[in-house]
Design a protein around this nucleic acid. Sequence first.
DNA 1: GTGAAAGCGCTAACAT
DNA 2: ATGTTAGCGCTTTCAC
Lengths: 353, 353
Amino acid sequence: MVKRTQPAPNGDASTVRDVAARAGVSASTVSRVLGGTYPVAAATRARVLKAMRELDYVVNAHARALGGATNNTVAFVVDDVTGPFYAHIARGVEEQASAEGRLCMLCTTHGDPKRILAVVETMREQRADAVIVVGGAWEDKAYQDRMTHFAHALDRAGSRLVLVGRPPLGPGVPATVVDYDNEGGAFALTTHLLSAGHRRVAYLGRVPGLSTSAQRISGFTRAHDLLGLAPDPRLIVDGPFSRSYGYQAIRELLASGPEFTAVFAATDMIATGVIQALREAGRRIPDDVAVAGYDDIPVARDVYPALTTVHVPQEELGRAAVRLALHREELPDSQHLVLGTHVVLRDSTRRAE
Amino acid sequence: MVKRTQPAPNGDASTVRDVAARAGVSASTVSRVLGGTYPVAAATRARVLKAMRELDYVVNAHARALGGATNNTVAFVVDDVTGPFYAHIARGVEEQASAEGRLCMLCTTHGDPKRILAVVETMREQRADAVIVVGGAWEDKAYQDRMTHFAHALDRAGSRLVLVGRPPLGPGVPATVVDYDNEGGAFALTTHLLSAGHRRVAYLGRVPGLSTSAQRISGFTRAHDLLGLAPDPRLIVDGPFSRSYGYQAIRELLASGPEFTAVFAATDMIATGVIQALREAGRRIPDDVAVAGYDDIPVARDVYPALTTVHVPQEELGRAAVRLALHREELPDSQHLVLGTHVVLRDSTRRAE
DNA sequence: GTGAAAGCGCTAACAT
DNA sequence: ATGTTAGCGCTTTCAC
């Protein structure tokens, strides 16, 4: 490609008017060529296109968005992109957005509820077509009220709030929810452990006030209930969804805690730490201790032994979020979609003693 | 894509004028309160703020961007967010962008050189403050010419092209480069293997035409040269940077290839597949075969045995990219920053036979 | 088929 | 300290 000698006066990008002048037409005609949705004489169009090329013209997306209503942008609000779980949802969002001709804004919140609210506000300013918020919600009244407020504000502006992997805000709140069967997955996985004979199953990674955590614990408990069992409360340990927490928690449990023959890690990330700590302590997996995780992120196949876990359809969650936000008619009723989960049996669980 | 013909039934997003009317002032006064950078009587300001709250007003970012030149946005263009390597760079970009008061647009290209060009074009339309392109570049003349063109176009528009983990486009091209010592890392790692006595080291994952690949191979070769050795060309195998490729390649090499006592996987992802294939074949790591990777993504600690690899400062790459794009004066000279890499010794390499 | 003109919502001179 | 005026670049009536 040859370099142009003087596209635009030094610093300022060229505008429709520049193109119009060069092509000897009016700005409106240039705009029509740009839009493509209006009849323009072939010869004129050709001249305009030539002028655009020569001036290296690109439309100003802001000017365009100012007139019309939409930004053609989908916002994705997430805790942390480096988590494989969220990263895969992000991929689904990005792919679907791009398939629908939308751009994707990425905002991370690092688990700070205040930041999430600030970010959603910013997305309102940006006039995003949809704002997709991913990750466990805080079961906090003030927080939920703010989110509800945003749902209404976005709705009024013709945009849409989508909650992924979170419970609905309540009836009548204009938000779309794309969720997965958190409780059911935990129930199935726990049942798998219990029916293999385990009676002392540790649950690592309870986060009080976090909806995801509450649902998983609920499934864990229900599976026990159904067999007339009750989990030992000392085996349900609070902690964040991190590898290092899993590692630490197991060391403490081994050192001074009650006995256990199986570990239900609230996430696969936790499970990787659990596995390392058990290996260092000389406990064989699954012979001495069975280990299971949740999410089915790629690392579940890479650890040794490969990790039994609950599969969550991450990419599909992301895709569905965008699709439903942009085509609300596809889900006419409750605007609440729940995707299934299922246990993936691998080598880290097998038999009790 | 549906086009709105009417001024849009987009609810009643209130404007500065609405706020002004309600507060009994002029639009400019509202704007001054908004900006905060101009004296407004305390009483007036209070009335305006009250009106804003009552109308649930938020500025229109597009209208604001239209007047000024900038969007306050940084664009991040990457192959695939689900790769942990890129995800961590993304985190650095997002954090720094947010620290500098910028939003972050995320675009993925799935390795398609055409899409990358399209995406950069779109970012020009969006008037992003900086466009950060991450990942190996194609050593292809036409492609490089297009990128060079974009560099100039962005520069003219007051924006900036930043290349992360790619070679510079050439002298005089207005682009910032944030790179890491790819060749040096490969050299150090290969030297580690050779000095442990390995003489038949397989290199898995050469991608012809990809700059990253070329640099790593170059370090691999140089380390051999320095000891007066020459790698067996049959042990340098082409293939993509994926787990499944690593798995497949090892199976083929074991089945019918030449002998080898060590594997240099071009990426940690490849290495995870290598480890699995070796384990299934009954080869002990590192006793029978030593394995090393590149990148130092989190999974390197999770595989068993833990993987020796080359650490790449991913988050810092992302942060530096944003920082340098926004404050060019910090790197006055060549606009080319190279971050160091270093070998991380873990359990997957130890001794030769 | 094309041009002239009127904004979209905001900010920034210039007045007062 | 506040109001008035004039655009930013584009789309979109409404004429011709």
